[in-house]
């Protein structure tokens, strides 16, 4: 029973991170019909930025903010310079391009920061909390993870629902031509969308790294989990991404706890193939079929 509870708790924490990462993928997919596989190394790179700041003697929080800001800038710059030319072109080009970026960012990090494991601090205790006399698998950093993802999601919802910029961004994503006719600078909205997505990805990177090790490829499997979570939710729906992330986090946590952590990625693959075969439009899709 206790193991079950602890597995569920760590699944929940992990699920929040996958949800954030899936959200980043969905934000970009909705507006540009591109799955940004480079999201993983982008988040890795910004986490290294945080590490540099922290290693220079500054506080964790300054590093945290530096990572998020550099995520924002990196997303905007990549969209403007690299992605813009392939938007609306054959989809295989965009896929290859984001994979090329994947290799570039990996290589860049390996050259600049070294191809080795480095430990990354956490701002809160990693000791499990105690309830009564038992220790549960939820620690200070876990709570911080859940809260910070919830806060960022809340801010995004507020931005999209209640602000003019959010309305313009949604309009650009849904129907860019009509948005242009209504005076929306669609290009700027796409750049902003990539910037925000990259910021959310960076947050996921920081949360995965906290109290653990970072390495140029430490986010590689997360992009797979984020993608699976996003597909579970339908790839088009931010809410779906969050729910998909939680479902995946819980499932993978149980696989890891009861079968073996080595098979986590295989489980994700199986879940992905099941969804794509049985409900290609995602778990919440109505009758409308989607070409996958």
């Amino acid at each position: 029973m206790q193991q079950f509870l602890n597995t569920a708790l760590s699944g929940l924490t992990l699920g929040m991170v996958y949800a954030a990462f899936a959200l980043a993928l969905v934000l970009i997919w909705r507006s540009t019909r591109i799955v940004n596989f480079a999201q993983a190394p982008m988040a890795m790179l910004t986490t290294f930025v945080a590490l540099v700041v922290i290693d220079a003697g500054h506080s964790y929080w300054l590093g945290f903010v530096a990572a998020l800001v550099s995520g924002l800038v990196l997303g905007a710059v990549l969209e403007r310079v690299v992605i813009r030319p392939v938007e609306g072109k054959a989809e295989i080009n965009a896929v290859i391009l984001t994979l090329g970026l994947f290799i570039v960012l990996h290589g860049l990090a390996a050259v600049v920061f070294g191809n080795r494991y480095r430990s990354f601090p956490a701002p809160f205790g990693l000791e499990g909390l105690t309830v009564g006399s038992t220790t549960i698998a939820l620690n200070g950093f876990g709570i911080f993870t859940i809260v910070s993802v919830l806060v960022v999601m809340g801010l995004l919802v507020a931005l999209f629902r209640f602000t003019d910029v959010g309305l313009r961004m949604r309009a650009s994503a849904f129907n860019s031509e009509v948005a242009r006719l209504l005076g929306v600078k669609v290009g700027a909205m796409l750049t902003l969308g990539w910037a925000l997505a990259s910021l959310v990805g960076s947050l996921a990177g920081l949360l995965i790294a906290g109290g653990s090790l970072v390495h140029p490829s430490y986010m590689d499997s997360v992009v797979v989990f984020g993608f699976v979570a996003a597909v579970l939710g339908g790839l088009d729906s931010p809410l779906g991404a969050v729910v998909g992330g939680l479902i995946l986090g819980l499932s993978l946590s149980f696989v890891s706890g009861y079968v073996g952590s080595q098979l986590v990625a295989l489980a994700a693959l199986v879940i992905l193939m099941l969804v794509l075969t049985l409900k290609p439009g995602g778990l919440f899709a109505q009758a409308a079929e989607r070409r996958v």
């Binding site: 313009r168 949604r170 309009a171 849904f174 031509e177 009509v178």
Partner: peptide
């Protein structure tokens, strides 16, 4: 102002959001 062929309603937005978008232009 140009109302395009096929009307160009943004179906994923509410009626009021469509209208507000027009006003923002």
């Amino acid at each position: 102002a140009h109302v395009p062929e096929g009307r160009g309603v943004i179906t994923e937005l509410t009626v009021e959001e469509n209208l507000r978008l027009g006003g923002l232009g």
